[in-house]
Design a binder for these strands. Structure first.
Lengths: 114, 114
DNA sequence: TACCGTTATGATCAAACTGCAAAACGACTG
DNA sequence: CAGTCGTTTTGCAGTTTGATCATAACGGTA
């Protein structure tokens, strides 16, 4: 009966109702770090640029710190880099969420195996 | 810096993209069991009747089983009860998600304490 | 037979999201 | 020194999803 039933878990951190960090947002930050561009990162995450921008700024407002340093113009048109605070945040979140998928899988199997 | 930052976790189970179970939906089922009425349960969960009804039927379709037995008309206007399958589902989900909040709290403290 | 409260569904409306587009910007090129 | 280029932002219309309002069906009871 549990055939093709798949468990899901979502972890995030809020400050007064605003999302400060989540798995998806950490992946977005990592994509920005990898590509050096919000535009490319948004394409990689398969969302419009506007969505990526909004999420980043919601995080920055919730945390009260700058996470992405953007420079506009120049030969390459501009780009974005992560601040040290953002890299620290990524490390903390990874520590926070490490192995959670496996835990959920184990619990699911224990509760729903027949 | 982690002052007023609160961690959250959401657990749910899907079958081909449709939500079969979640914490909120289990609470809805329990409200139906307690009140004997979808209408009252919806008010208790602070959602319109239609929303509660839609969630229940999405669960039933995803699981391929009846969860709520409703009878319409009568002196009391009608009512709804949980099927044994629904009560079994509640027990399994509670076993699945028991203590998860505490685990998240511990992990949050370990990762974000300064 | 009329009433009552609940189930169930049709119709309407608001909000969120998406995609398109334009303005600002600054290093590099010719 | 003006022009080009690609990126960052922000504005705007179209669409779609989901919530809210309103209505029909139902069957014991008085």
């Amino acid at each position: 009966m549990n055939q093709s039933l798949v468990p899901h878990v979502n972890l995030w951190i809020e400050r007064d109702g605003c999302v400060a960090v989540s798995g998806w947002r950490v992946a977005l930050l990592q994509a920005i770090a990898a590509t050096g561009s919000i535009t490319e990162a948004a394409q990689q995450m398969d969302v419009p640029y506007r969505v990526a921008w909004a999420k980043i700024h919601e995080m920055e407002q919730a945390l009260g710190m700058t996470l992405v340093a953007s420079h506009v113009g120049g030969a390459d048109g501009g780009g974005s880099q992560l601040t040290p605070a953002a890299e620290d945040l990524i490390r903390r979140y990874q520590h926070f969420s490490a192995g959670m998928e496996e835990i959920i899988q184990q619990r699911f199997a224990a509760a729903f195996e027949d």
